[in-house]
Simulated scan of single mutants.
Amino acid sequence: MLVRMLYASRATAPVDVETLHAILKASRAHNPKAGITGVLCSTDSLYLQVLEGGRAAVNALYLRIARDPRHAEVTLLGYEEIAERRFAGWSMGQVNLARLNPALMLKYSETAMLDPYAVSGRASMALFDELVATASVVGQG
């Protein structure tokens, strides 16, 4: 059974380029074996991620993330059984925040800043869908 999970967490240390590349490299190495796909969006202080795959695999990954010392305030924003994946093309895609239009953020939140703690999980998922549709996700494979 396929599921889709959306979570947010606060970074315990600033997310620099090296940290982000290490996370993406590990995700792209391990996720295909587990049948997990998804997209990661991060700023220097938070993570917002969609994970898709089998229930057991996605749940196990979420538990590892929740125990990871790089994450604090890990918050489940959405979890649903799905018939098909939305992000099948990415073992772990990355949102290119440099290409993010502030008007798009305003469409889903009170400010142009990415803050998944201030909006509904449904709004965050709609934002991800639009990011994919506007080619703001990079790092296929």
Rank of each mutant, 00 (worst) to 15 (best):
Y62Q: 05
M1S: 10
P116V: 14
N31E: 03
V95L: 06
A34N: 08
V137S: 05
G141H: 12
M1K: 08
L46C: 07
L97N: 13
N101P: 00
M125Y: 15
V74R: 01
R99C: 03
D129A: 13
V132M: 08
G93Q: 08
R10H: 11
R28A: 01
H30V: 01
G141W: 11
W90K: 11
A118L: 12
A72E: 07
G54M: 02
R86F: 15
G121I: 08
V15R: 04
G78A: 06
G141C: 07
A8E: 12
A11L: 09
G89E: 14
G53N: 05
G121F: 14
A34Y: 03
V39Q: 07
A22V: 07
M5H: 07
G35H: 14
S136D: 13
P14K: 04
K25F: 15
C41G: 00
R55I: 08
K107E: 15
A34R: 05
D68L: 04
S120Q: 13
T75N: 10
D16K: 09
P102H: 00
T19E: 09
R28I: 14
K33M: 05
P14L: 15
V17I: 12
F87C: 04
M5N: 07
E18V: 13
V17T: 15
P116I: 14
L100Q: 01
Y117W: 12
F128H: 02
E130W: 00
S45W: 00
I36E: 10
L104N: 00
S136N: 07
L106P: 00
G139W: 05
A112C: 09
M92Y: 00
L114D: 01
V58Q: 01
E130V: 00
E73Y: 13
L40C: 09
L76D: 11
R67Q: 06
L24W: 04
G35W: 04
P14M: 05
L6C: 14
Y7V: 09
L2K: 12
A56T: 14
N101W: 01
R4D: 04
L127S: 06
A13Y: 12
A66W: 03
V138T: 08
E84M: 04
R85T: 13
I36T: 03
L51E: 05
S120Y: 13
L100R: 01
K33T: 02
A133V: 09
L100V: 11
V119D: 11
M1R: 11
L97V: 15
P32G: 02
A22Q: 10
Y47N: 10
P116A: 13
S136G: 13
L61P: 03
R70T: 13
S120A: 05
R122W: 03
Y47I: 07
V95G: 00
K33V: 06
V15G: 04
A103C: 00
G93L: 15
A133I: 10
V138D: 11
T19R: 11
G35I: 01
H30R: 12
V58T: 05
V132Y: 14
Y117V: 15
L61M: 08
A98T: 08
A126K: 09
V50N: 02
R67N: 12
V58K: 00
A56F: 01
V95Q: 02
I36V: 12
A133G: 13
N59S: 10
